[in-house]
Structures are given as structure tokens and as C-alpha cells.
């Protein structure tokens, strides 16, 4: 028996909220909440870069992932690499050679679907910083229960009971998969059905950033 969520059904995302520009020092900052999971991201850049790390033709992207408790270890490095590769795909790094773009992610509370929350808030923070991007991204996590049911945006209890947890990141132009990260065993058919279920909500998420940014009166 899988635990049911009180606030929404299995094929719906939890209530999402986002706030930009809440920190005064970074060039861009955003916080994103999916249900109770909440993450805050700060972006600095383009800024000076150490000579050993500089690229002559593009900007150096650095991601620092800070968990809520504990010292960052191997799994944090793994998340950093995932998020960094995702950002390198969408940020037009060739426009800022020999500079660095630093993204710092701080986990405030993890109540399931942490990776997708991090990617979403990183995208909003990059948007707030005004860094040139080729498109927006939206991330959705889904879990496969032992009965084969798909649960979108699972809570941590549902993640513990799940047979497999899959996270996908879609880009806003053609709605294709940029990043895919999975845990657990599943069949190829189940993979495709998860992709389809998540893609529907990924598309909706991409439309919302425009609604949340402030409007400027001319």
C-alpha cells in the first residue's frame, strides 16, 4: 500500500511557489518550494576567475551544493556535477569568456523531490541574474510504486516506499529531455510512461516563470 498525499492526487504536482531577488548581495537569487521541499539558490557572475580554472572561449561554471546537515561528500559532488552539466547546456557561456559563474545551492528542507526542486530554483536564479540563456528548464521527479503506479513529485515517505525514482529535466523550446537521473529498477515501458507523465507537467512549469517575474512599467 502506498501512502496517499492529503493535498493532491498522485498525478499532480504539489503546490509550487517561487520568489526571486530576495538576497541583496548576489547578482541573482531565488527560492523554490515544492510542497514542503524548499531550496534557496544564489548566482554570482560573470565575475573574476582563477587563472588555473579559466577557459579562453567560455565562462567557467561552478556549482556548490550545500546539504541541510553534514559535510558535503561524494553524493553532493554528484548532484553538483548533474546540475552543472544541466546549466552548461542552457547558459550561453561563450558570451563571457575568461569569467566565472558561481551557483550556490542551499537545501532548506528536503521533503522529497529534492533534485528537481534544486534545478528549478537554479533556473529561476539564473533568470534573476540576467545571465544569457538559450532556453528555460523545468525539472520533474516521479516515483514508481511497487504496484507500478506513477506518482509525480513524491514526498519523502513515498520515495522511501518506491521501487524506482526518476528525475527528468526538460528544456522549454522543444520539450526534449536534457537530463535524466534514475534510481531503482524499472522496465523501458515504465520509463517512457514516466517521461510522458512528467513532460506534461514540465511544459506547464516552463510557462510559470514569466508569471512570477516582476513586470516593469514603461
Amino acid at each position: 500500500m502506498t501512502s496517499q498525499r492529503a493535498d493532491c492526487g498522485n498525478l499532480e504536482l504539489r503546490s509550487q511557489s517561487c520568489e526571486q531577488n530576495l538576497l541583496s548581495r548576489p547578482d541573482g537569487s531565488a527560492t523554490y518550494c515544492q510542497g514542503d521541499t524548499s531550496v534557496i539558490v544564489a548566482v554570482y557572475g560573470p565575475a573574476e576567475v582563477k587563472q588555473s580554472k579559466e577557459f579562453l572561449d567560455k565562462a567557467t561554471l561552478e556549482v556548490i551544493f550545500k546539504p541541510k546537515v553534514g559535510i558535503p561528500g561524494c553524493s553532493e559532488k554528484f548532484q553538483e556535477r548533474l546540475i552543472r552539466n544541466t546549466c552548461e547546456t542552457i547558459v550561453l557561456t561563450a558570451l563571457h569568456p575568461r569569467s566565472s559563474i558561481n551557483i550556490i545551492i542551499q537545501v532548506m528542507h528536503n521533503a522529497g523531490s529534492l533534485l528537481s526542486c534544486c534545478v528549478n530554483s537554479t533556473c529561476m536564479a539564473l533568470l534573476d541574474a540576467g545571465l544569457p540563456m538559450s532556453c528555460l528548464v523545468a525539472a520533474v521527479t516521479c516515483s514508481l510504486s511497487c504496484d507500478g503506479d506513477i506518482i509525480l513529485d513524491p514526498t519523502s515517505q513515498q520515495e522511501k516506499e518506491a521501487k524506482a525514482i526518476l528525475t527528468f529535466v526538460f528544456e522549454s523550446r522543444d520539450n526534449e529531455i536534457i537530463t535524466s537521473n534514475t534510481h531503482g529498477i524499472y522496465s523501458i515501458k515504465q520509463y517512457y510512461s514516466c517521461v510522458e507523465a512528467c513532460r506534461k507537467y514540465g511544459f506547464v512549469s516552463c510557462q510559470s516563470p514569466l508569471g512570477t517575474t516582476n513586470t516593469v512599467e514603461q
Binding site: L127, L210, T213, V216
Partner: peptide, 19 residues
Amino acid sequence: SVAGVVERVNKLICVQPLK
């Protein structure tokens, strides 16, 4: 490539970022 308002001056199109 940024979120903002499209500005057009004759033949030049640019996007002014919000922040």
C-alpha cells in the same frame, strides 16, 4: 536569451533584462 522586454530601434532588436 534573457528575460525582459523587447526593444526595437529601426533595424536593431535587443532585449532589456528586467534586472
